[in-house]
Amino acid sequence: MVFQRYVALGDSFTEGVGDHDPTRPNGLRGWADRVAEVLAARADGAGQDFGYANLAIRGRKLRAVIAEQVEPAIALQPDLITMYAGANDILRPKVDLDELLAEYDAAVRRLAATGARVVLFTAFDPGGSGLYRPIRGRFALYNELLREIADETGATIVDFWRIRDHKDWRLWDEDRMHMSALGHHRVAVEVLDVLGVPHDLEPTRLDDAPPPAPRLQQLRENAAWAREYLVPWVHRRVTGRSSGDTVSPRYPTYGRPGTGADQPV
């Protein structure tokens, strides 16, 4: 199948945070752009038009993603929709995942009713992270509830939990919260493979990891990371602010990936 209208919904994961590119909207590329580039090339080869919209905004919790992005996505009449939301909810001190995923289910049903192919993502496995390991059970429950949604709606699942090489920190940005360019490339490959879309993206290859840094150096690096990233993140949560408060969607209407220019289809 050649997709012609692709809309991406979500938070920083889909906006592309961590995959820096100053030539693109919001200074980001991301896995969704990479997927859209392949889809655009296939549409061009088939002599068909192609449009890509990315409505994702960093920091958005699940209810905000649903409230702000689902209706605009439906209005664009896409034939492919990707949606990932909920990670920012899981990280809160308290969260009712059953109630939250019931709302997610309703949103996915609305998207699926359009006839578009809908792609959802499980959360990654935080077992290798000292920062996120204490709430690993929440991630697992979220994933199981999400798999139920996919089973009942016919949505396609990208099982991020089972992508084991994502435990390698080289696939993560220096903030330890978002994927690096290599990580976004890895997700793009997975999405295209799950969709059955032929592509020539190289599989991720990781050389042997360098030996661990001396303990003192690790402590210094951890302290520097906490000052630069963790403390501001906690402060935003305490004050009710979000990193996406002043951010707009990268592609609010259909355009060609990488151009930053709207090109209606």
Rank of each mutant, 00 (worst) to 15 (best):
M1S: 15
M1Q: 14
Y6W: 06
V7M: 01
V7K: 01
A8K: 04
G10W: 00
S12F: 02
E15Q: 15
H20W: 10
H20C: 09
P22K: 03
R24M: 13
R24E: 14
R24C: 14
R24F: 13
R29L: 04
G30R: 01
R34C: 03
E37F: 05
V38E: 09
L39P: 07
L39W: 12
A41L: 13
G47A: 04
Q48I: 10
N54F: 08
A56E: 02
R58G: 12
R58C: 01
R58P: 06
R60C: 06
K61A: 07
L62S: 07
E68P: 07
E68F: 03
E68A: 09
E68I: 10
V70H: 05
A73V: 07
A75I: 04
A75Q: 08
L76K: 05
Q77K: 15
L80H: 05
L80M: 08
Y84G: 15
N88H: 05
I90M: 06
K94I: 14
L97R: 04
L97A: 01
D98P: 13
E99Q: 13
L100I: 06
Y104Q: 02
D105A: 12
D105S: 14
V108M: 13
A112H: 05
G115F: 12
G115E: 09
R117Q: 12
R117M: 08
V119K: 02
F124K: 09
D125Y: 03
D125M: 05
D125L: 01
G127L: 11
G128K: 13
G128W: 08
S129Y: 02
L131D: 01
R133I: 07
R136W: 00
R136V: 05
G137L: 03
F139C: 03
F139N: 00
Y142G: 06
Y142W: 15
E144Q: 14
D151I: 04
A155K: 05
A155T: 06
T156S: 11
I157W: 06
I157D: 07
V158Q: 02
V158W: 03
D159G: 03
W161D: 08
R162P: 12
I163P: 00
I163F: 04
D165S: 15
D168K: 07
W169E: 11
W169D: 11
W169L: 12
R170I: 07
L171E: 08
D173Q: 11
E174H: 15
E174Q: 15
R176A: 07
R176V: 01
M177T: 00
H178R: 02
S180N: 03
H184R: 14
D193W: 09
V194P: 05
V194Q: 12
G196N: 11
P198L: 13
P198D: 10
E202L: 15
E202S: 13
T204Y: 10
D207F: 14
A209L: 13
P210Q: 03
R215S: 04
R227K: 10
R227A: 10
H235P: 00
S242D: 00
S243H: 01
S243D: 12
D245W: 04
V247P: 08
S248A: 15
S248P: 01
R250N: 12
R250F: 06
T253L: 15
Y254M: 14
R256F: 14
P257E: 11
P257N: 09
Q263I: 11
P264H: 06
